[in-house]
Nucleic acid binder design. Structure first.
Length: 904
DNA sequence: CTCCAAACATCCGCCATGTCT
DNA sequence: AAAGACATGGCGGATGTTTGG
């Protein structure tokens, strides 16, 4: 698509250069101009006025101040303007005439907090202008969306704000209309942006020219700025991709609008459904708009005018409305200026699909089960194991495909309702850790004639999520032909505060599907299924060998058996190397296996398993092997277990072993997971607020090497209206008829706020007083220690986590192993079993919560009131592939309470 | 410190397809 | 209705840059 970013006119850098001091590593999806007059006032007006939640506001931007008051470089915002305590605000300043335009960048995906404080630089302090320290500023895309008392002048997308042109003759008014031509005034009746900044006008508008050297595709027309969502002069042409290209130059020109360093608003141009309802698919402001809450005063957008490719809010209109598709915006522009709004509708105005407020849904980091007794979310057709993701600077590389050439297919079984549901899709991690949204990849909405699936896009907690309908008429089956994969630049993501993952070589992802099924009483059951891993790098598809399946994952220390590997890119020179690493990542053993080259093919290797280095081991030894085609062309490590001669090996599914790390349960934090991730294993969950652990009946996971990635957690039921993170899921055990607890029917019920007790008979979390409590202690190696081996078929007790502060560290948030539920050990302090013992006793890691597999064993003992302390120690014992060792964490006592069973 | 290769990020070109004139 | 222009989508591959050994 066309982008003014591609204009390489060096004279166009004005604003960029002046703002280049800003560490624009973050993104700035949109820029807004605000006018405040005078400065040095608290623009929040009434301090007691409740602030809108961060989500209620859109991206940041630029704030106009009288020049004399901000004749210094703004260096930072404090506190974080994004509602994310881990993020800083970076502000640049452009002085022009009587205004200074402040640029505020933000980390990708984060919404801007409604109120920020801008801290002047040291230079400013030197001038004794301390009065401007902690200058409070309210940021809002438009008055109608935010706190009254201050109004934005205009706002626009980064494309239009980029330093594209120095052509002063270019008006930033389009002939028909201009998003900049807002008559908004400052609280004091100041000027409009139009009046203030001719240069910005130019910049914002861009110039209709193509710089030499740019792609022939590049052309800048007024349309490109007139409607940020009008990527083409011919909007009616072939449906546009939600993603536009950006040029490399952009990345070399730091600016107020770190376009180069920022993510372009992914989708451009809303689209209409057959009913003429406009759906937008821009991610740019999705964060903010997702947060639109009709219940919030002033959160309703004003009048909306829709053009073929853009949606606009008109001024002074109390309610949003849709303009008929045939409405000519030009006829409106003359009389009334209006704002361009990101073509992403707030969820509450998006018809169909998931109507459940995002806040009521389980966070994406939470593990969810693939099935319950009643429902099952299945990936009928897995995606190809290679898909070259595209960068923002590239054109789309299409949707993820199936190996057969089609597309992945997902189906929800067991749903008897008549209402269609929304199937959510996002990109998750594919490493050995617990599934969570991938920091370096985002799902990318693919449109076009080849795409048959209607999709909607939203952003949930910085993660782009596609939503497609699951309709009864299609047997709740959906072909995923609209999901591409966007690669975010490593540097951008790694610079985020709080981001612990690295992007380099972190190129494997999974498609994660979620569905939320409404239940009587307002709750909903949430299911999740994750695809097998998809390699997203460019070269891997052609060069890197990939093991897809192995016919065995273990043998005795003697080796000698034949193992058949199937996969891709095997060559005659392919070698198979077995390695063993210590828990801290040090490789202590490496041996090349013998490959039967006569039998082997391009997609199949016949390997003779080498003997283990130590035949006298008394416990199973977990090692890895990989296929290597040559220097640095090796597959992902595969798992293999050597069993001791004397001890009979207990065969378990690989999923059990690998999901929690080879040594068992691994604390999320030790793995660098975000504090928001509270898991133990995908099959269980403890929420820091009110934890619960559950056990779900086991269901066969998908076959194949990646079956271990199948998230199988207890179903989580969230009542509508519950607050996402504020509310807490609570585990309830379904009584099997007559209120008799069924060990195989435990589910997690999101109870929302404490004031919102679940409707399923469970006590409100936070009132576990009547329930026995227990203390569980984690071992130094993150293993849950148990006093004894519970019978494997006992029902799982319901766990309740008490007294967790929100800010509790990951250790506390860490999912307690399902076995925590082993209430009978109370008041026993559970000690970790030695790895050896654990492995020999039961390869299902004791530290894992295995709700779905329902290792009832642990749970079925009679509940004994008491306390179990969960203690986390020696996390470095956690074993991860590739040396992804866990880091030590402080011990955090975790108090769990048993909750009475309840059913849905 | 340099060198080198891998990985990353971007650029280039081509073809297919769709819409508009 | 057909043809041409123009645009985007969807690639494959090349190339420049960064990073790590």
């Amino acid at each position: 698509m066309t982008s003014v970013y591609e204009d390489k006119d060096p004279n166009a850098l004005g604003l960029a250069e002046e703002l280049s001091q800003v560490s624009c590593q973050d993104e700035l999806d949109f820029a807004y101009l605000f006018e405040y007059d005078p400065p040095c006032v608290d623009f929040t007006g009434d301090q007691d006025e409740p602030s809108l939640p961060p989500q209620a506001l859109s991206s940041p931007s630029s704030v106009a101040y009288p020049l004399e008051e901000v004749a210094y470089d703004i260096k930072s915002c404090s506190p974080s303007p994004y509602g994310d305590p881990t993020s800083d605000g970076l502000v640049g300043c452009e002085h022009h005439e009587n205004r200074a335009y402040l640029g505020l960048s933000r980390p990708a995906g984060l919404a801007l907090s409604p109120r920020i404080e801008i801290t002047p630089s040291r230079e400013h302090y030197n001038h004794g202008r301390d009065s401007l320290q902690a200058h409070p500023v309210n940021i809002s895309p438009r008055p109608t969306l935010t706190v009254p008392g201050h109004e934005c002048l205009a706002y626009r997308e980064p494309q239009c704000l980029s330093p594209a042109s120095s052509n002063s003759s270019t008006s930033w008014h389009s002939e028909s209309f201009s998003p900049w031509a807002s008559p908004c005034v400052s609280p004091s009746g100041g000027h409009t942006a139009v009046d203030l900044c001719p240069r910005l006008q130019n910049i914002h508008t861009g110039s209709p020219r193509t710089s030499p050297g740019t792609s022939p595709r590049t052309s800048i027309t007024e349309d490109s700025c007139q409607g940020p969502r009008s990527p083409s002069p011919r909007p009616g042409s072939r449906s546009t991709s939600p993603q536009g290209k950006r040029t490399y130059d952009m990345y070399k020109t730091p600016s107020l609008f770190p376009g180069p360093r920022s993510r372009s608003p992914s989708p451009h141009g809303g689209h209409e459904d057959p009913n003429g309802v406009l759906y937008s698919h821009s991610s740019a402001l999705v964060d903010g708009l997702n947060g639109f809450n009709p219940a919030l005063p002033g959160s309703n957008p004003a009048k909306i005018i829709k053009t073929s490719n853009a949606t606009f809010y008109r001024e002074s209109q109390p309610e949003p409305y849709l303009v008929p598709p045939d409405l000519d915006v030009k006829t409106q522009s003359g009389a009334e200026p209006f704002f361009v709004i990101p073509p992403m509708w707030p969820n509450h105005v998006m018809p169909g699909i998931c109507r459940i407020p995002v806040a009521s849904l389980p966070p994406l980091e939470w593990p969810l089960p693939t099935c319950t007794d009643q429902y099952e979310l299945c990936i009928e057709v897995q995606p190809k194991q290679h898909h070259r993701a595209h960068y923002e600077t590239e054109g789309s590389r299409g949707a993820v495909k199936a190996p057969t050439g089609g597309h992945p297919v997902v189906q929800l079984h067991g749903y008897k309702g008549k209402e269609p549901l929304g199937l959510q899709i996002f990109i998750g991690t594919a490493d050995e850790r617990i599934l969570k949204p991938h920091a370096f990849y985002q799902v990318h909405r693919i449109t076009g004639k080849t795409v048959t699936t209607t999709s909607y896009e939203k952003v949930i907690s910085s993660t782009k999520v596609l939503e497609i309908p699951l309709e009864p008429k299609n047997n709740m089956r959906a072909m995923i032909d609209c999901a591409g994969i966007l690669k975010l630049r490593n540097a951008d993501i790694e610079l985020r505060k709080g981001e612990t993952d690295i992007g380099r070589k972190n190129t494997r992802v999974r498609l994660v599907f979620r569905v939320h099924i409404p239940q009587p009483g307002g709750q909903h059951v949430s299911l999740q299924a994750a695809s097998h891993a998809i390699e997203c790098s460019q070269r891997s598809a052609h060069e890197l060998p990939m093991v897809e399946t192995q016919d065995t994952d273990g043998c005795s220390v003697l080796g000698g058996q034949q193992m058949i590997l199937s996969g891709q890119n095997f060559t005659a020179d392919s070698k198979v190397v077995f390695i063993e690493k210590t828990h801290d990542g040090q490789q202590i053993w490496e041996v090349e296996a013998t490959v039967d080259k006569d039998k082997s093919q391009a997609n199949m290797l016949f390997v003779e398993i080498p003997p283990y280095r130590d035949r006298s081991i008394s416990h199973a030894a977990k090692v890895n092997f990989y296929v290597i085609n040559g220097k640095r062309k090796r597959s992902q490590p595969q798992h293999f277990t050597y069993t001791p001669l004397a001890v009979p090996s207990i065969k378990t599914e690989p999923v059990d072993e690998y999901e929690s790390g080879s040594l068992g349960f691994v604390m999320p934090q030790a793995l660098g997971m975000s504090p928001q991730s509270f898991y133990s294993s995908p099959r269980g969950l403890i929420h820091p607020d009110n934890c619960l652990v559950s056990c779900q009946q086991g269901r066969p996971s998908l076959p194949g090497p990646d079956s271990r990635f199948q998230q199988q957690s207890p179903a989580i039921v969230y009542p509508r209206g519950a607050k996402g993170l504020s509310g807490s899921p609570t585990l309830y055990q379904q009584p099997a008829g007559g209120g008799v607890p069924d060990p195989h029917r435990s589910v997690l019920v999101h109870t929302g706020s404490p004031a919102q007790p679940p409707t399923m008979g469970a006590p409100p979390h936070g009132s576990p007083s009547s329930q026995p409590s227990s203390i569980i202690q984690f071992s130094p190696t993150n293993h849950l220690l148990r006093g004894g081996a519970p019978p494997p078929t006992e029902p799982q007790p319901i766990m309740y986590c008490e007294g967790y502060p929100q800010g509790v560290t990951a250790a506390a948030r860490s999912p307690a192993p399902a076995q925590v539920a082993n209430a009978q050990q109370y008041p026993t302090v559970i000690q970790q079993q030695p790895y050896v013992q654990k492995m020999t006793k039961n390869r299902t890691s004791p530290g894992q919560m295995e709700p779905q597999r329902c290792s009832p064993s642990e749970e079925q003992r009679p509940s004994v009131p008491g306390r179990v302390t969960v203690k986390q120690e020696n996390l470095d014992q956690a074993y991860l592939d590739d040396g992804q060792g866990a880091s030590a964490n402080e011990n955090l006592p975790l108090t769990l309470h048993l909750m009475p069973p309840c059913s849905i």
